[in-house]
């Protein structure tokens, strides 16, 4: 019985720790499927977090906060798109620079917005929503069906993204752009417009990760609160083989390992704690090797497309 409680705990922790990574990873999948790397996820999480905190702080409404966060993400995505598509900056350099820029900008703005309270200004957030009936299931119920609304949003978006990317016409076009932009262009697919669309959505999804941290978890903005989740998301994209569902599963797997390592710390306090902290990374590596994930990245990811280049 105790073990079931433990399992329920770990599952609830999985959802909490995995959700932000999953949002960012979804964003990464959509960008990479359109042929653009989004290394700026880490910074965009921060942008979303600040937008959400500021919006909720100003209006007292978590929903408006969510909207503000998403807008910040869209804008940062458009900017990254401008760098990658229009200016054709190396996408890795552009992403790294965006991370630097957004880390600084969010810190600067949070000090302007929250003033002396910076780092401690509490904002309105979402509360947990219990889904009737389902939340009464033992073990699974309390852990998975009484989460915050953004967790359900994640599941919805993941399914939607899968459908859009894999089943819809536009998704097919998008994937074609990621595989072979020239062929797609010749077939009349609006390459650049789709890429801008994808990279903006990507930014908005990463921003949702930040909004989740602020509005569902801790109700404050803190500088650098993304704490590397954007980079883990990059790994989740690949571990999930560039599929929206796969990436979410990979992110949740990572969250599971992270949640489990806290439990393990208690059961064996004599083992150096660093061993537990590296567990999620090691587990992901092992999963990668066992699944034998062959490199199956979109063929043209990272290569700027130039119409005049023959």
């Amino acid at each position: 019985m105790v073990d079931l409680v433990l399992l329920g705990d770990v599952l609830a922790g999985t959802a909490r720790l995995g959700t932000p990574i999953a949002f960012a990873a979804l964003g990464g999948v959509i960008a990479e499927r359109s042929g653009l790397y989004n290394i700026g996820l880490e910074g965009q999480i921060l942008a979303g977090a600040l937008g959400a905190a500021a919006g909720s702080f100003a209006t007292g409404s978590a929903l408006i906060g969510l909207g503000c966060g998403v807008i910040c993400g869209l804008v940062s995505g458009l900017f990254l798109g401008y760098m990658s598509i229009r200016l054709r900056i190396n996408q890795l350099v552009g992403g790294i620079a965006l991370n630097l820029l957004l880390a600084g900008l969010t810190a600067f703005l949070s000090r302007q917005i929250f003033g002396a309270q910076a780092g401690g200004a509490r904002v309105e957030g979402f509360t947990q929503v219990r889904i009737p009936l389902l939340s009464d299931i033992p073990v699974l119920g309390p852990s998975l069906f009484s989460q915050d609304p953004l967790f359900y949003l994640l599941i919805g978006i993941a399914v939607l993204a899968w459908y859009w990317l894999m089943k819809s016409h536009k998704g097919l076009d998008l994937r074609a752009v990621g595989e072979n932009p020239k062929a797609a262009d010749l077939a009349g697919v609006p390459v650049f417009r789709l890429q801008y669309l994808a990279i903006s959505i990507s930014g908005a999804l990463a921003a949702l990760a930040g909004a989740h941290l602020v509005l569902s978890q801790v109700y404050v903005f803190a500088e650098g609160m993304s704490a590397g989740k954007g980079f883990i998301a990059l790994a989740a994209i690949i571990l999930g083989r560039w599929s929206p569902i796969g990436a979410v599963c990979a992110a949740l797997f990572f969250g599971f390992c992270d949640a489990a390592q806290f439990k393990l710390q208690f059961s064996s306090p004599e083992v150096p704690y660093q061993l537990f902290l590296i567990l999620p990374y090691i587990a992901s590596l092992i999963a990668l090797v066992i699944l034998g994930a062959k490199a199956s990245a979109p063929a043209s990811v990272g290569l700027p497309y130039d119409r005049e280049h023959r």
Binding site: V5, D9, A12, G13, R16, L17, P20, L213, Q217, V218, V220, A222, E223, G224, M225, A227, D258, A259, F262, K263, Q265, F266, P269, Y273, Q274, L277
Partner: peptide, 22 residues
């Protein structure tokens, strides 16, 4: 006793506390 390895990761801080409580 829980060691989080990070002074500023808020989400991790919350998770560690939730774990101790459970």
């Amino acid at each position: 006793v829980t060691w989080t390895g990070d002074w500023d990761d808020i989400a991790k801080g919350k998770e560690a506390a939730l774990n101790q409580i459970s």
